[in-house]
Nucleic acid binder design. Structure first.
Lengths: 239, 239
DNA sequence: GTTAACTGTTAACGGTGTTCACTCTACGGC
DNA sequence: GCCGTAGAGTGAACACCGTTAACAGTTAAC
């Protein structure tokens, strides 16, 4: 499993990195549509077929880029909430949410590639095992882990299983292991947190809020406070 | 402003309709990517350049299709809530929300074209005057109108302007005319309703909820009840 | 030192949106 | 009722795209 690094596959790894760097450069410059196979090759002074020595297809290149971006986002958010080792968990969640928004606004093209319009894909298997999806799971785990920690430190009031209904409860229970055994009602509230956070950021980054809110920062802040309340976090936290 | 309908422009209008019909057929069959200029021409037994007699570009064709779909969605939702002339306003809003979700799930490809990943477009003017955007405004007006009616019939408790902060209040006030003079706090809650509804439907249709909720119907119902509560609607309504 | 694998090239295929020059038909004005 | 003209449609072509095949040069391995 180690690396012989025969000098050749060191260059190969370097080339792969250069390709992905060029792809990203094009991505931030002109959006997802701009990162084409030929454009990437042009950026490196190569001919298009040369890239097929490194990626089996254009889609595979994009998928690798997606995986990298997920990992970058994940570690960025980790670094953010690990900056000070003794921040309370509520603030950590606040930092996670705000960090996600900041990253999305600072990297709209990358965010668009990661979270923009996934194919409905009615037939496809749920378990796409591309590296991109595995990176997405790690990213999702970051949130689930933190919410579970918040819960286990100070359980928050949550709706009863009767209020939610058996259909919903069963599906929430299936996610229980990822939330360290939290009850269905608490998972429900956590899902709300994620759903609202995700929806807000998408709407802002994709320009659906601009029509009514030219500057959505204040709205986001207010919403963040509101959705945090449901998880027992009653302080909007400093700056 | 009337129509001389010289027999020739009647045929022209018919051809335009056929083109859009073919485009839509391709859309539902294979998603947005499948509705290409050449594919549409093929569908009609025409050569690609012929379409340029009717639409100045491929994008214009898609834009016209978008406008049509917005109008179709708008009238579908209007019909739904005007089916029975004396339904109370709360139920109308409930029908609107559920009708939007149903339409989105029944027409995922069309929904994807309408609401999927708008360009961030940091430079572009806000006031895109394409027919698609005007149709989108009519669609948005449907919601604003109904919410304003709900408010004026039975004002619901809303956060004070001090709670929201001056920055947010100013932006909400700018929307006041579209909400028949509602106060900022009430517009804030209405915006929440729309934001959460839109986010939920997008996440469900675009498959971002499938990972945790294989069947999001129960979750949507619970959320709809929750977001309706904030507007003083305390009944989940029959069926 | 020879052989094999790796990296890159050129040429080509089918696909896309789009433009140009050309025909043919049908309507409107005299 | 004829004629001129605008409209509808075509075929060829351009530039771009992702992708494949056949080929050449370099580098590592035995």
């Amino acid at each position: 499993m180690d690396s012989p690094t025969t000098g050749r596959d060191r260059r190969r790894a370097a080339t792969v990195a250069e390709i992905k760097a060029a792809a990203r450069r094009l991505l931030v410059g002109g959006g997802t549509a701009a990162v084409g196979l030929r454009a990437v090759a042009r950026e490196l002074g190569l001919t298009p077929p040369a890239l097929y020595r490194y990626f089996p297809s254009h889609e595979a290149l994009l998928s690798a880029l997606v995986a990298d971006l997920y990992d970058e986002l994940t570690t960025a958010l980790l670094d953010l909430q690990n900056a000070d080792p003794d921040i309370d968990l509520g603030t950590r969640l606040y930092l996670l949410a705000n960090g996600l928004r900041d990253w999305a606004l600072a990297h709209p093209a990358e965010f668009g590639l990661l979270f923009g319009t996934a194919v409905p894909d009615p037939e496809g298997d749920c378990h796409d095992q591309t590296p991109g999806h595995r990176a997405a799971m790690r990213f999702g785990g970051l949130f689930k882990e933190l919410v579970a920690a918040v819960w286990h430190q100070k359980p928050f009031p949550h709706p009863s299983e009767e209020q939610l209904g058996p259909v919903l409860v069963e599906q929430l229970r299936a996610e229980s292991e990822h939330f360290r055994g939290m009850p269905a009602g608490a998972i429900y509230l956590s899902l709300n947190y994620w759903t609202r956070l995700y929806g807000l950021i998408c709407m802002e980054v994709f320009g659906q809020l601009h029509w009514v809110l030219p500057d959505a920062a204040a709205y986001f802040e207010a919403q963040l406070f509101e959705i945090g309340e449901a998880l027992g976090l009653d302080c909007p936290m400093p700056e």
